[in-house]
Design a protein around this nucleic acid. Structure first.
Ligand code: ZN
Ligand code: ZN
Ligand code: ZN
Ligand code: ZN
Lengths: 138, 138
DNA sequence: TCTTGAACCTCTAGTCACTAGAGATCGTAT
DNA sequence: ATACGATCTCTAGTGACTAGAGGTTCAAGA
C-alpha cells in the first residue's frame, strides 16, 4: 500500500494527472486511509503503467478507456484492440506526412533569410504573405 | 467593404475564428455598419491571409503576433523573424522525430496481432502493458 | 414598402489532456 | 507536542478554436 506521491514517483506520472485519470474513469478509485488519503496497491501501479505507456504512444484517453475495457474481458475477440492500434498508426502517419510537408516549406523559408536584412525585404515575411511562393499545399 | 461572411469565404477561415483572432489582437477591430456589423477592406483580407498561412505552417498565435508586429516596422532588422521561423522549423523536426519513433513501435505492435485472437493473448495489449517489448524509448 | 430569412451580433460553455494555485487537513519524524 | 511536507478538494487557466442560445440587422423579392 503506497501513497499517490509514491505512485507518482514509480510511474513518472504527476500527482494531479493521476487524480485526473481517476476522475476520467481510467483508474479505479483506490482505497483511502481514515484521513481520506489515497492508498494504492500493485494492481493500481500496473494499471497506471499501462495508461502511461499508451499515452506515451499517443493513444487518446478515450482509446485507452476502450483498451482497458477489453482487457477486462480476457475471452473476447481482440479485433477491436487491433483496430484501435491500427487507427493510431494511421493517425501518426498522417501527422508525419503533414509535418514533412511543413518542414520542406520551412526549410525554404528560413534559408531565404539570413536575419541580416530589414523586415521590409525579409523573405520570411514575404513567404508568409504569399502562399504562391510555396511549393505545395499544406 | 465586405462582411465577415464574405471574408470567411475568401480566406477559408471560419467566422468564429475570425472573431477569435480579433479578440486575440491579431486582427485590428474593423469598421462597423450602423447596425454594428463588421465591414472589412483589402487590408483586413491581406492580414487574415497572412495569419491563415502562418497557422497552416504551424506557427502559434503568439509567434504570429510577433511577426505582425515586425511587419509593422519595415526598417527594423529581420533577425527576430528569422529566429521565429528557425524555431518553428526545429519544433516541426522534433515532432517528426518523436512521431517516427512512435510509428516504428506501432508498426511492430499492430503487426503482432491479426485481430483474430482473444484479448488475453493479444500482442497489442501485451505491448502496452510492457514497455520492455519496445525497441526504444518514447 | 413590407416581409422574409439568411447572416450577423454577444456571451457562455465545451473541447483535450492536463497544470497551477488556494486553502485546509493529514501523516510522520523528532 | 510540534513542525512540515504530503495530501485533500475545488476552481480556474492553457491553446486554438467550436457550438449553441437568444437576439438583431441586412438585403432581396413581392
Ligand atoms: Zn529576413
Ligand atoms: Zn504556403
Ligand atoms: Zn490481438
Ligand atoms: Zn514502449
Amino acid at each position: 500500500m503506497f501513497s499517490i506521491g509514491e505512485l507518482s514517483r514509480r510511474t513518472n506520472v504527476k500527482v494531479p494527472t493521476i487524480r485526473y485519470y481517476e476522475e476520467s474513469g481510467l483508474l479505479d478509485a483506490p482505497e483511502r486511509t481514515e484521513g481520506n488519503q489515497r492508498r494504492y496497491d500493485a494492481a493500481g501501479l500496473e494499471r497506471l503503467s499501462f495508461i502511461k505507456h499508451a499515452r506515451d504512444l499517443g493513444f487518446s484517453i478515450e482509446a485507452i478507456a476502450a483498451l482497458i475495457e477489453l482487457q477486462g474481458h480476457p475471452d473476447r475477440s481482440c479485433a477491436e484492440a487491433n483496430d484501435i492500434a491500427t487507427a493510431q498508426l494511421s493517425d501518426v502517419r498522417a501527422k508525419i506526412k503533414r509535418l514533412r510537408a511543413l518542414e520542406k516549406e520551412l526549410v525554404r523559408i528560413s534559408n531565404g533569410c539570413d536575419g541580416g536584412g530589414v523586415t521590409e525585404d525579409c523573405y520570411v515575411l514575404a513567404s508568409l504573405s504569399d502562399h504562391g511562393l510555396c511549393e505545395r499545399d499544406h
